[in-house]
């Protein structure tokens, strides 16, 4: 199939960006979206032009590096799918595709489709851990964690930290990201001890890093490639209130 791409090009953080148009020719439906972009880049290089810069690494949907808004939807809008797992069979010959970077105040653009997501790191450093030291911990079976609790923690822990929740949110909130870690650790006996300090520190850091608050649009859940549920935001809110008690 042949496609027309409109891609956001921006030299650097201060430069003015714009959409440029490219043709993607002879695209195979078995190719991934990024493989299609690889081919476009090969053509650009051969034409002596600067290839499109985009983040990617594992290309199997788990590292959280890839980050593109495709036709207005983070990761392209398919259920539980990262850009790297999006395949060209979901497009049709002659389609026009708009490709933009994550857009949020807290995610300044480095170049083209590559953004700076360090603000998410700062949130994690504010409390996304249990304060256990290496060695000198109890046996893994010393504290029993019934399956439903372990499953709940795992549902939250599946977050890959890509930032699609932020990109999809009208408030550029990182609530889904923050709540996933808060909820995972709040429900486990190993994390309960620090739950109050954690939820306070992480939530306040989220706001001070330039992310907005949650006003229940649930776009984040829709965009999340790992299907993280908004119920964790409710857990965060409960934990946050509890932290003042």
């Amino acid at each position: 199939m042949n496609l027309t791409l409109h891609v956001w090009r921006q030299k650097g953080p201060e430069a003015k960006g714009e959409l440029e148009t490219y043709q993607a020719k002879n695209v195979s439906e078995d190719q991934s979206f990024l493989e299609m972009l690889d081919d476009v880049n090969e053509d650009l290089i051969k034409a002596g032009k600067d290839p499109i810069a985009f983040d990617h690494d594992c290309r199997e949907g788990i590292c959280g590096m890839c980050s593109q808004v495709i036709n207005g939807k983070p990761h392209g809008g398919q259920e539980r799918t990262t850009v790297c797992q999006l395949h060209m069979r979901s497009f049709n010959d002659g389609d026009e595709i708009f490709i933009e970077p994550w857009r949020a105040k807290a995610f300044p653009i480095h170049k083209d489709l590559i953004v700076d997501r360090n603000a998410l790191e700062v949130i994690m450093q504010a409390g996304g851990f249990t304060s256990c030291h290496t060695g000198g911990v109890a046996d893994g079976n010393a504290l029993l964690i019934p399956k439903p609790v372990a499953d709940y923690a795992m549902d939250a822990a599946e977050c890959i930290g890509c930032g699609a929740c932020v990109a999809s949110c009208p408030n550029s909130s990182a609530m889904l990201f923050t709540s996933a870690k808060v909820a995972q650790l709040a429900v486990l006996p190993q994390g309960k001890g620090e739950a109050k300090a954690r939820v306070k520190n992480m939530t306040e850091t989220m706001l001070s890093e330039g992310f907005g608050n949650c006003t229940n649009h649930y776009e984040c859940q829709e965009a999340c490639p790992k299907g993280i549920n908004v119920k964790f935001i409710a857990t965060l809110n409960r934990e946050y209130i509890k932290s003042f008690c």
Binding site: F129, G140, A150, L185, Q190
Partner: peptide
């Protein structure tokens, strides 16, 4: 160590 960090390993119903 991983359990202490909050790694949600698979568990049975008893925990």
């Amino acid at each position: 160590q991983c359990v202490a960090q909050g790694v949600p390993f698979a568990r049975d119903y008893a925990g």
